[in-house]
Design a binder for these strands. Structure first.
Length: 366
DNA sequence: AACACGTGGGG
DNA sequence: TCCCCAAGTGT
């Protein structure tokens, strides 16, 4: 058994940081320690891979170079900057946070983890990351990498899906991390976790810290971390209505709460909400959709079933199967319609989720 | 304490 | 196709 005494801890710190100094990745947000840069990158990196984030980060800094630019940006522009990244409330919370900083903090970032965690969208992980990287505070940043790395090094078998387990790791890491380079230490752990100490196919034989890895030394690496699995996505049936009014496409903005908040799609209707009988025919479905348009939008829709394969889209917790309907609405003033008519050439101005892109692609709308 | 909340990649 | 994972947070 490895004994994590003071000498082991020093040895580990130096081994890890020496490796990081040599092999650490050169990433766009590592060019300086500006809290704004650290913050934006950390929010983008939540549940999202580095390779995906890089181009989004570059463009975001181009469009919104400062906290004030972010605070004052039109929301549609923000969502456009986030389009395709997912978890769209992240960017809306970022804008609220930016406004909060300007209004209540005189534009000055809190420099402690506790102070940072009081801001919207900043939880324990991000608070630790910003505090350690931007402000040199000796606090851990416990993300999936840290869970994986330290559960293996120390053979911690607490279930990382449980909220209370965080404390176990925070305590262990706080004891092990150096007080002179906390930000580099936290980032080194992340680099380690995404290179040699990955979840499925670790390459610990070549890891700079393999001699500290008790699970590896015991041949039990893949048993860590311990994590209960999540339920399967629940199937949900939808119809999408691709309706034209003259040369415009009918688009609706989703409510600000719930999935894909404030993003734009064609009208998407849960089949359950159409109150169809078990043995409903295609004609019944079209009639129900037409009635829905009249009731909800005050629009007269002429609908037809599109002979296309349904679009499927799987979210973390829902699996949508979407039948496509085409149609036209009589010209109207849209006073009761919670959306607008948009020319094909203007569609790319609207922030839309991936599932909407799939719908347009299936229907060959380009 | 659970569950909602996106998307892309790999096996 | 399905499952799991990836720099989590809000409710």
């Amino acid at each position: 058994m490895i004994e994590w005494n003071a000498a082991t801890i020093k040895d580990f710190q130096h081994t890890l940081l020496d490796w990081y100094d040599q092999e650490g990745r050169d990433l766009p947000w590592r060019h300086d320690h500006e809290p704004y840069h650290v913050w934006v990158s950390e929010i983008m990196l939540q549940q999202t891979q580095v390779q995906t984030v890089i181009p989004y980060y570059e463009r975001f800094m181009d469009w919104f170079p400062t906290v004030a630019d972010l605070a004052n940006a039109p929301e549609a522009r923000l969502l456009k900057a986030w389009e395709g990244l997912g978890y769209y409330s992240r960017v809306r919370n970022m804008q609220r946070c930016a406004q909060q900083l300007l209004a209540d903090y005189d534009g000055q970032w809190p420099q402690t983890a506790a102070g940072l965690e009081a801001l919207v969208g900043i939880g324990p992980y991000t608070a630790g990351a910003i505090a350690s990287i931007a402000f040199n505070q000796p606090v851990p940043a416990v993300d999936g990498n840290a869970y994986r790395v330290f559960s293996r090094l120390l053979k911690i078998d607490d279930d990382i899906a449980k909220p209370q387990t965080r404390q176990v790791f925070e305590q262990a890491i706080t004891r092990i991390m150096p007080h002179d380079r906390p930000g580099d230490f936290n980032q080194a752990i992340m680099d380690l976790g995404s290179s040699y100490m990955t979840a499925r196919q670790p390459d610990t034989a070549h890891s700079p810290v393999k001699r500290f890895n008790q699970a590896y030394l015991d041949g039990q690496e893949l048993a860590y971390p311990v994590k209960t699995k999540k339920p399967r996505p629940k199937p949900v049936a939808y119809v999408a209505v691709l309706a034209q009014m003259g040369d415009q496409w009918l688009m609706v903005q989703r409510p600000s709460t719930g999935m894909l908040g404030n993003l734009w799609t064609v009208p998407l209707i849960k089949v359950d909400e159409l109150d169809l009988e078990e043995d409903a025919s295609t004609a019944d479905l079209l009639a129900a959709v037409t009635a829905y348009f009249k009731r909800e939008y005050r629009l007269i829709l002429t609908a037809k079933m599109l002979k296309l394969r349904p679009v499927t889209h799987t979210f973390t917790h829902q699996k949508w199967t979407i039948q496509l309907i085409g149609g036209q609405v009589q010209p109207a003033d849209l006073a009761y319609f919670a959306g607008k008519g948009v020319l094909l050439a203007e569609l790319d101005q609207l922030p839309m989720p991936k599932v909407q892109e799939k719908i347009f692609n299936r229907a060959n709308v380009h």
